[in-house]
């Protein structure tokens, strides 16, 4: 399962580099006389309402959706780790303050807060990613804080402190390296979810502009052309394959690293 997941992810990562070379048509080229063609010899996945080649658009879509999902996780985890580390390490008032803020952000369901933010900032890919980062970091802050609390009284941390190390050194060299593994597992498990949510925002018209080849947006446009199943089935299936692949990998990693599940 993990291997299958890895293969699919590697395949799409390769598409990230090769899409412009492999795409048979320009993803933006319109040909209205050739619109809504079912899959056939010329267009292996058919054409959309403006006669654009769906296969080429899906390949180019890799350049949008995959980096967007990864960026959400990268920035979300980064902010979360910093906030969680500061809260856990310094404790006291700072901890209380940061954790209350974290809880506050967690009270807004992801897509609703993201919709409000994306609407406030204006619909664009960057703003959709920014909106998702804002709703994504609290989970990491909570986890990292818990881990830091657990690690900060260990002997080797005390040893570093008694040797005269400063706060920054202790945090970055002795505490954080011991907290990162669980955060990284969470991140892997989460990439699929981030891609799914990004596609959802995009589906709601809060991501890319309509002409940009983005998978969620392609499905959303296809709702009005419901009978032309190829318009929504292919981009939808691509999202599903990528999300499933990341979930396979994440599940595998967790089973591997959680001793309670091992050997069962």
């Amino acid at each position: 399962m993990v291997l299958a997941g890895l293969l699919v992810v590697v395949f799409w990562l390769a598409m990230l580099l090769l899409a412009p070379l492999l795409a048979p048509y320009d993803p933006l080229a319109q040909n209205v006389r050739n619109r809504l063609q079912p899959p056939g010899a010329l267009h292996s996945m058919g054409t959309d309402e403006l006669g654009r080649d769906i296969f080429s658009r899906i390949l180019h879509g890799t350049l949008v959706t995959l980096p967007a999902g990864l960026a959400v996780i990268a920035f979300g985890a980064l902010i979360g780790i910093v906030v969680g580390a500061l809260a856990g390490y310094y404790g006291g008032l700072l901890d209380d303050l940061l954790m209350r803020i974290t809880e506050l952000f967690m009270a807004f369901p992801t897509i609703i807060l993201a919709m409000a933010l994306a609407a406030a900032l204006g619909p664009s890919i960057q703003n959709a990613v920014l909106a998702l980062v804002i709703v994504w970091w609290p989970a990491y802050a909570r986890i990292v804080r818990g881990l830091v609390l657990d690690v900060k009284h260990r002997d080797y941390v005390e040893a570093a402190r008694s040797a005269g190390a400063g706060d920054f050194y202790i945090l970055s060299r002795t505490i954080l390296p011991n907290c990162l593994a669980p955060a990284l597992i969470l991140a892997t498990l989460d990439v699929g979810n981030a891609i799914l949510t990004f596609a959802g925002l995009s589906f709601l018209g809060l991501g890319s502009a309509p002409e940009v080849p983005e998978w969620g947006r392609m499905v959303s446009i296809a709702i009005d052309f419901f009978d032309q199943w190829w318009m929504w089935l292919y981009p939808g299936a691509v999202i599903a394959s990528l999300v499933m692949a990341f979930n396979f990998i994440g599940d595998g990693l967790r089973d591997l690293l959680d001793p309670r599940l091992r050997g069962k």
């Binding site: 589906f203 969620g216 929504w232 089935l233 939808g236 299936a237 599903a240 999300v243």
Partner: peptide, 22 residues
């Protein structure tokens, strides 16, 4: 259940509509 958490819900909805309704 892995498919349930990985499939975009809009894809499930469109599949359901196509197969069971259309």
């Amino acid at each position: 259940s892995l498919i349930g958490v990985s499939f975009p819900i809009f894809l499930l909805a469109l599949l359901g509509l196509t197969i069971l309704h259309a």
